[in-house]
Design a protein around this nucleic acid. Structure first.
Lengths: 186, 186
DNA sequence: CTGTGATGTCATCGATTGATGTCATCATAT
DNA sequence: ATATGATGACATCAATCGATGACATCACAG
């Protein structure tokens, strides 16, 4: 029983953690396919073979990174201006996030696709659907999905750079615009 | 001077055409990176080496396919219901189209990115920008880009399948929803 | 008929990527 | 101290992909 955290030179938990962090960042920046296991390992300062050991394969690491990324249980919906600002801010500093990419680009691996879909619904669709249901609108789920898709489109386009004013626009200017568009659905 | 189209067994124009068509279809379905030159050649019924001969490389074929895809000069803007329906229909039968993907996912090759960006503006952004300008709104270009990004998000999400009600929704049901969302920007 | 350029076919290269197996090294219990 | 399992480093494999060069074959002009 030495101190609580003896500086072990070999620490699987730490390796796992570093891999998860690096994978989360890279998947957010470049998406699943354009991120290589070697890149992840390099950023994590760890051997690439450890990915197979701890997560089975690249898909396993992706799914683990997805789940590790999840924060609160029930976030506010997209019509909340603060929520919008937070999402745009985060996507600006780090990448767009692997979850959002899933809305627009399907994965080959079915397991990966399912995990990402679950996160997408929990984080974007369900909160909006509940708001629309409370408002007594018809097809609340469809409305919520359209809103989520539209929002993800703007979020990703802002990072892609093909639409230059959008990419350059300040978040303060963007949020009210996006909000009024989404409000058109409710 | 024999007949206008002698049945030549070797016909570079025909090979070019078949490559362009196959490339257009596959790039639309799977995007640039996930489409291999071998796939294109196979669908075109042509040897893959001809891609290099006629278009230099894969990027050259992509750009050529982009330009070949362009139809009319000035299409109606996205607030036109018929235009919306036509775009959703086409994306449903064939893929989402390489141009739209560009709005959301950047390319490595700068030449490719520039060509796609030009098409994107001509087909989606500019018409909307002009409408917003006529309406006397501030920041018409930014509004048009946000609208285009939101629309592309919905279009791609419909094909990706992560949002199931959206993917299953009938076009007739979808168009008014999307239109009202975009109308929130004007 | 023959030469020449155009067109098409085939084999293969070099690079990248995900994955696996082997072995060394460290921590810990006995 | 030593045995044993955990952890990590390294080499390498198999598959894929874009690209290229060499060669075969056809069309057409002379």
């Amino acid at each position: 029983m030495t101190g609580g955290t003896p500086p072990r030179r070999r620490d699987s938990a730490r390796s796992r953690e570093r891999l998860l962090t690096a994978a989360g960042e890279l998947f957010a920046e470049r998406g699943f396919e354009r991120t290589t296991t070697r890149d992840i390992a390099e950023r994590a300062g760890v051997d690439a073979a450890l990915i197979a050991r701890y997560f089975g394969n690249k898909s396993g690491l992706y799914i683990a990174a997805l789940r590790a990324e999840t924060g609160d249980a029930a976030p506010p919906d997209l019509l909340d201006a603060e929520r919008l600002r937070a999402l745009f801010d985060r996507a600006g500093r780090r990448g767009a996030g692997p979850v959002f990419r899933t809305a627009v680009l399907a994965h080959d691996d079915e397991t990966v696709q399912d995990a990402a879909r679950a996160q997408l619904h929990a984080r974007l669709v369900t909160p909006l659907q509940e708001r629309f249901t409370r408002a007594g609108l018809d097809r609340p789920r469809l409305r919520a999905e359209v809103a989520a898709a539209a929002f993800v489109g703007v979020l990703l386009a802002r990072g892609a750079g093909a639409l230059d004013e959008l990419a350059a626009a300040d978040v303060d200017e963007l949020v009210p615009l996006v909000r009024s568009a989404l409000a058109g659905l409710g």
